[in-house]
Amino acid sequence: MTRRVIVTGLVIVTGLLLQSTLFWQFKLLGVRPELMFLVTIVVAILEGPQEGATTGFAAGLAQDFLLNQPKGVTALTLTLVGYSAGLARQYIVSASPLLPTILVAVGTATGVAFYQVVAFLLDQLQEPFAFAVRVTLLSALYGAILTPIVYPLLRRVIEGSRPTRVVRF
């Protein structure tokens, strides 16, 4: 359990570091990837809705603390994204290797749109509608492009941090 918490924490900090440094130079048509969405959805796919929601909450809160906007909006968004992605994975019976990519794209697009609606209702977002749609679609596309690289890496890390079960007879 402790090992899982440390590993998840390290993954979140690494994601935030890369998002605020390296990916500033690697934008896709002016838009950065939403790495916290990517991490949350991948964890949800691998571990289910409970882990997805918890990781989403932690990742969202960590990102919120680095923003100057009201804290909690990203945490709320990613909690719901993690739970929904984990739930969706349980109901979709498919062995297609494209499934994680599709789930990341759809989850990121829905989550970013939800975030913008909440931020708009709190009077914290005044971006034009066209820009909001552009960021939603491009961040989803960027997430989908990164999934084939990030998914196997995270799967390895997460599976390595699973507690080993001891069966006693």
Binding site: Q50, A53, P70, K71, G72, L80, L122
Partner: peptide, 22 residues
């Protein structure tokens, strides 16, 4: 049910954080 309870708790905490920060 425990997962749903967890999600409701996390969403409630998020809403509390938003309100408190606001």
């Amino acid at each position: 049910r425990s997962t749903r309870l967890l999600v409701v708790t996390l969403v409630s905490i998020s809403l509390a954080v938003i309100t408190l920060d606001y």
